[in-house]
Write a protein that binds this DNA or RNA. Structure first.
Lengths: 118, 118
DNA sequence: CTCACATATTCGAAGTTTCGAATATACTAG
DNA sequence: CTAGTATATTCGAAACTTCGAATATGTGAG
């Protein structure tokens, strides 16, 4: 695979590598919201939200459109939603593994160990 | 969505937010490889590869297993491959948009503008 | 035990990200 | 024009990431 594609992917990931920005993308799942609405729902500083939105714009994750006094944001491509959905499933999968491990640790005769080599 | 899930997702993204680590994950698509094989294919310093592998382990993206003198790495969950595939399609989609924009800029009477509001 | 090899960790420098505070810009109403 | 509201940018401090160099650890052979 090309370096350009790897670079591109890593920038997308970097754009999403922050819980606040993930929260923004998820708020935008249902449709566009103004910066003000996002700030209100996120409960964070205006400057901070604006900075995160700038990152999402720079990484081409969201689109913005000005309407009068406000700026409305939306997700640029549905693919990103799919990515988040896959990770949700992945998350619950990981959770189950963790539960299994705990059960094994708690039980007397663990049958299969999921330990790492260290 | 819970903070824990957002935190988890952002850590996965952070784990993948680096071109070298993406290259590692893609090399592991076809099956497990030893650290040495990865280093050779990546052409980077041993210490650096090992650090990146440590990040991938910490974020639960890969599994490692020791076999004698070597440590073999594999991808923990197929979901991550799906994510990379989705982004590949996304990438080409973005590329086409870019090409369209260039064509419009080059042409005399652009019909639709994809400009941002600024 | 010792040696050699494969891999991991620690360290410090350079670069990047994150935050809130302060300030700047864009737009609307009057 | 002025004033008000919405949003963006700049700044500096603290925290985090990345790299290579050096060092440490784990394993197998002898």
């Amino acid at each position: 695979m090309s370096d350009a594609l790897r670079q591109f992917k890593s920038e997308i990931f970097q754009g999403l590598a922050n819980p606040t920005r993930i929260a923004i993308v998820e708020l935008l799942r249902e449709g566009e919201l103004s910066a003000g609405e996002l700030i209100e729902k996120l409960g964070i500083e205006q400057a901070n939200a604006s900075q995160h939105l700038a990152v999402l714009r720079a990484k081409q994750i969201v689109l913005s459109r000005r309407a009068g006094n406000q700026v409305y944001y939306s997700i640029r491509d549905h693919a990103l939603i799919e990515v988040l959905d896959i990770l949700r499933r992945y998350f619950y999968g990981q959770l189950s593994s963790a539960v299994n491990m705990l059960q094994e640790v708690a039980g007397e005769k663990p049958k299969s160990r999921l330990r790492t080599h260290r």
